[in-house]
Amino acid sequence: MKVLIPKQHGAWAMLAVPFILGVVGGGADGRHVPLFIGWLFLYLAAFPVTMMVKKKKTAYYQKWAGVYSIPAVSFLVIAVWMEPGLVLLGVSLFPLFLINLYYAKTNNDRALLNDVAAIGVFSAGGVASYWIGAGMLDGWAWFIFIQSILFFTGSAFYVKSMIREKKNKRFKWYSWGYHTVLPILSLGFGAGWAVVGLIPSSIRAWLFYGRKLSVKKIGIFELVNACVFLTVVSVFLLRI
């Protein structure tokens, strides 16, 4: 039996990077293990659910939604038992997931707003992991959340400008405009010298646009860029 694994490669970075930043900022704790396992399987379960909404191979995706939901619920219950406040965080994310379901239902899941909603959900993983490690929510939890949203929104703009919207000149200016203000927004939300981690995003958006890069190369560059962001912001958090 072939295991169902989402092919949304960028989503894996969105899943991991904010969570790791939360661990770095809040402090590593053994409770991160069940939280991350539950978070991972929740993502794996959400993918077939969106496919079910599209009414594609419903029975097949129902099976995998069930397979992944069992460990997701089991490990998240453990995490919530250790930090009950996580329930509130989960409830607050539900409207964003409804946005994802809506765009899946309308077969428009490549829409930018859908991407931003998903980015918000993934970035909240950093809030959860920080909360578990620090035992509280403070400004640094929201710093991780906002900086992650800023970074990955830039990634969404860039990838669309290189693939789906590569012939859309108006979208090019949207992407360039966002990446022009990206460092300013990052600084405005307290990045300090960690803004260095977002500058490569702006540079690649300007320099790479219009170049004939394969989807694979675009993905590799984005992975490297995410690693740069993760490294710089992690060092910044360790020095506060």
Rank of each mutant, 00 (worst) to 15 (best):
L137P: 07
G190R: 03
F151G: 06
K169A: 08
G190Y: 05
Y209G: 04
S123T: 09
S123N: 03
I5W: 02
A156F: 00
Q62C: 14
K172H: 14
E165N: 11
L76E: 12
L207T: 00
W140C: 10
A141L: 02
V80H: 13
V24N: 02
I199L: 06
I163K: 15
F171P: 05
A72Y: 00
G192H: 11
A117T: 01
A46V: 11
F97E: 04
V159T: 11
A79N: 08
R164N: 03
F75G: 05
I20P: 01
L4S: 10
R164M: 03
K105L: 13
G85Q: 13
F221W: 13
A28C: 10
A134G: 04
I146R: 01
V224T: 08
F41R: 09
G25W: 01
M1N: 13
R204D: 02
G126A: 00
N114P: 06
L150I: 03
M51P: 11
Y103P: 07
V195Q: 07
W193S: 04
R164I: 02
L237V: 06
I144R: 03
N100C: 14
S92M: 14
F152W: 07
H179P: 02
F75H: 05
L93I: 11
W176H: 11
H32A: 01
F41P: 09
I163N: 14
F171M: 10
I20D: 02
A226N: 13
R239P: 07
I5P: 07
V235Q: 11
K166H: 07
E165T: 07
V33F: 15
Q147K: 04
V91A: 05
V33R: 11
Y178F: 03
I220E: 15
A194I: 05
P95I: 11
Y43M: 10
A194N: 09
L137W: 00
M1C: 05
G135Q: 08
G190W: 03
P34T: 04
T106Q: 13
S74P: 09
K217D: 14
G120A: 02
W176G: 08
F151H: 08
I78E: 12
M136I: 08
I132P: 04
K217W: 14
M82R: 14
M14S: 02
K63V: 10
Y61D: 09
F75M: 09
I99K: 00
K56E: 15
Y178A: 08
A191R: 05
S148E: 04
I149P: 03
S92G: 13
A13K: 06
G126N: 01
V121Q: 01
E222T: 03
R211Q: 15
N107M: 12
K54Y: 14
F94S: 10
K55M: 12
Q62G: 15
G192V: 06
L150Y: 01
G120D: 02
F229R: 07
I132Q: 07
P84L: 06
G219K: 07
F157C: 06
G25T: 03
L15M: 00
I78Y: 15
V49A: 14
F97I: 12
W206E: 08
N114S: 15
G219I: 00
V33C: 11
Q8K: 04
K2C: 08
K55W: 13
P6R: 01
V195K: 00
D138H: 07
G133K: 06
L213F: 04
V24Q: 03
V73S: 09
M52Y: 05
G188D: 13
V3N: 07
V181Q: 08
I119Y: 01
